Amino acid sequence: MRKLFFVTLLLLIFLVGCSSGKVKPTVSTSPPPSPSATPTPSPTPIPEQEQDQVEPGQDPVHTSVIDPSKLGNIFGFAGINGQQILVTGLEKDQDNKMVQLNKAIGANGAVVSVKYLKWQAGNDELNNGRDLAINMENEPGYLFTVEEGAAEQDQTYYLINDTEFDTGALLAIQEKNEPVSDEQLLSQLATIHDRKIEQAWTLTEIAGTDGLYLVHFETVGEEHLFSLVVIRGDELIFKDYPATQKETTSVWRVDDGGEVSSDNFSMMFAANTSDGILISLNWWGAEGVNSLFLLEKNHKLEDLETRYGRYTSPL
């Protein structure tokens, strides 16, 4: 019996020793990973901020400009059906200059491609002296054909070489010809000139500005005044037209009665230049139309030597 007891005891000791020899799993002393440490898929890369969209043909770095010192002085008008343009007012034998011209800019900045055709002698007997489409074949001048599109009959055109005049500098234009109703603006304009306003009109909207305005001020004694104004934000850029005249039959133009209105003016074009904005404007009168170039300088619009006149008095 005692022997059986010792045998059983030895067996138990043996079993306990075997179980204590097993490798126990190692318990980590590091804290469990936090939820933020749990591996997650890589986030989708955020794309770089896109650049402003640029219209086709537009320089994404800077706006095109023209050099005012390179402006020519060659104008003409379009004939019937708009397929020809006649350059008038120049002496003969300038074909070498004419052949270099390949574009013509007309009303509201419309551009057509042109090609020099010939010097036209005209017809002295039939020429009535009017720079109009119905008289084009009778006038002497340099004749161009319109290669693409059509010019607008009887409109004035400014002829250029597009390697010297970048047409990308032309600004979008929208005709308005409507009275100004902004009382605050009218008060500001009157205060600047210390004179009451008879009437004011928005002539046209021009890209990059708040528009081109015509302001006719009250006559004081014999002193007459109207102004063309480009407004750009808080900046007002004036071209004043004062006149001293006792008789009011013809103050600025023949038979104008001392009056101006939006009907007297139409845009040829507006463009960015290395100096500032350039405005090309047609000023219509009872006997004809003058084309003016006004260039921004020192917060004013100044007349350039580039100009043209057409005699269109009714027959």
Rank of each mutant, 00 (worst) to 15 (best):
K97T: 13
S34H: 10
G211E: 03
T26N: 15
K176I: 08
P32W: 09
T202Q: 15
S64E: 08
K97H: 10
W119I: 00
I46V: 13
W119M: 02
P68W: 05
H193P: 04
V54F: 04
Y142I: 00
Y241V: 08
T38I: 14
K24L: 13
G72P: 05
D263N: 12
G257Q: 09
Y142F: 13
P56F: 03
L11D: 03
S187G: 13
S69Y: 07
R310S: 00
L4P: 06
D52G: 15
L236S: 11
E296Y: 03
A37C: 11
V54P: 02
V87W: 03
F265M: 07
P60W: 02
L159V: 01
E164T: 11
G257A: 05
E91S: 14
S42P: 11
W252G: 06
N96H: 12
T38W: 11
K70E: 11
R195Y: 06
E305I: 06
R2V: 08
E125M: 12
Q51P: 09
L315C: 06
D303C: 03
P242S: 00
D263H: 14
V289F: 04
N127G: 00
R310Q: 11
A207F: 06
F238T: 01
G89Q: 01
E305V: 09
F75T: 02
N264P: 05
L90F: 05
Q51L: 13
V289T: 15
D59I: 01
L189Q: 04
L212I: 05
T156F: 10
E305H: 14
G72A: 07
I206D: 00
E139G: 06
E137W: 07
L315M: 13
S20K: 14
T219S: 14
R232Q: 13
L292E: 12
E48Q: 12
T145L: 10
L214F: 10
N81S: 14
Q94K: 15
P45D: 04
V16D: 05
A271M: 01
L304I: 01
Q51G: 13
V180G: 12
M268I: 13
V7L: 14
Q83I: 04
G211L: 03
S250F: 07
R2I: 08
T63K: 15
V54Q: 06
G57M: 02
K246M: 08
T44S: 14
Y213P: 04
G17Q: 12
L214W: 07
L90K: 12
L281V: 03
Y308L: 00
V220T: 14
K92N: 15
F77K: 07
R2N: 10
A121I: 09
D240Q: 04
S181E: 11
L214N: 04
G17Y: 07
D256A: 05
K196S: 13
A151C: 05
K239F: 11
